[in-house]
């Protein structure tokens, strides 16, 4: 596979994936098959593809929630292999899940401050200041004392984004952040993500929100059958997809 690092970037890519392979059920299910991928700093990369193609698995391998069978992953110069490195790298990677995964027994404020205090060792005051800033940024500062169960889906997902941002990560991973949301709530989450992209965050987003891909993505990957089939810009992919499988998939999701 070719190196996607362009001549303009002298820095090494912030995420380097080499020959990544991941199987389940003792090799009977191949989720990722020899994936190599570089993502430079500041890039917004959207991944699309049919269900079961390995998108989530790839995202989860990047912060080692899934342990790959083989291959190397280097994040921000840290090669992920040892437990210590993994925890260090995870501080640099924020992740947002489809099901939000907020901590239901903690208030919104505690959700955002807990990891800051126990992982980053910040004082409560400092952590809360950061949390309130982020809550203002995602537009729900008034919900600081509420519990996740009292929030709408869109509000929960925005809290989840704030929680990830509070660790001041260099990379944000989004796994279908809007697909568990009602249509009227999707926009409020996408707005936050758009803002984040404009601020220059490195983002890897699994999403079928084509509007977001058009507006924010620098790059779009099409995955099928555990491989990256097509790797191009949004304009290229939407206007003239090279692969027939891509064309077929796009015609399905764009109607």
């Amino acid at each position: 596979m070719g190196d996607h690092q362009s001549a303009g970037h002298s820095d090494p890519p912030i995420i380097q994936i080499r020959n990544l392979r991941k199987t389940f059920h003792h090799g009977r299910i191949v989720a990722l098959d020899d994936i190599s991928l570089d993502i430079p700093k500041g890039q917004v990369c959207v991944i699309i593809g049919p269900s079961g193609s390995g998108k989530s698995t790839m995202l989860r391998c990047i912060n080692y929630l899934e342990v790959p069978d083989s291959g190397t992953i280097i994040v921000d110069g840290i090669t992920l292999s040892e437990a210590k490195d993994i925890n260090r790298a995870r501080m640099e990677i924020g992740m947002v899940f489809q099901q939000f995964n907020l901590f239901p027994h903690l208030s919104v404020l505690d959700n955002i401050t807990l990891a800051q205090r126990v992982v980053r060792k910040r004082s409560r005051q400092e952590a809360e200041d950061i949390a309130m800033d982020l809550l203002r940024k995602v537009g729900i500062p008034e919900k600081a004392r509420a519990y996740p169960g009292q929030l709408s889906g869109g509000q929960q997902q925005r809290v989840a984004i704030a929680r990830a941002l509070a660790m001041q990560p260099k990379i944000m991973l989004f796994d279908e952040p809007t697909s568990a949301l009602d249509p009227e709530m999707i926009k409020e989450v996408l707005d936050v993500m758009l803002q984040l992209a404009q601020d220059g965050m490195t983002m890897v987003v699994v999403s079928h929100e084509m509007g977001f891909a058009r507006n924010a993505a620098h790059r779009i990957l099409f995955m099928d059958d555990a491989r990256i089939i097509e790797d191009s810009t949004p304009e290229e992919l939407f206007n003239s997809p090279k692969e027939p499988r891509t064309r077929e998939f796009l015609s399905k999701i764009l109607h």
Binding site: R60, N63, L65, N87, R88, R90, M91, I93, G94, M95, F97, Q99, N101, L102, F103, P104, H105, L114, A115, V118, V119, R120, A160, R163, A164, M167
Partner: peptide, 25 residues
């Protein structure tokens, strides 16, 4: 298990996640 994953993705160790997230629930 999403609870554990969320905690780990924030950089908590297994025991921190147990102590602050899993056991209280």
């Amino acid at each position: 298990r999403g609870q554990m994953e969320a905690a780990r993705s924030l950089g908590m160790t297994y025991f921190q996640a147990m102590r602050y997230i899993i056991l209280p629930q």
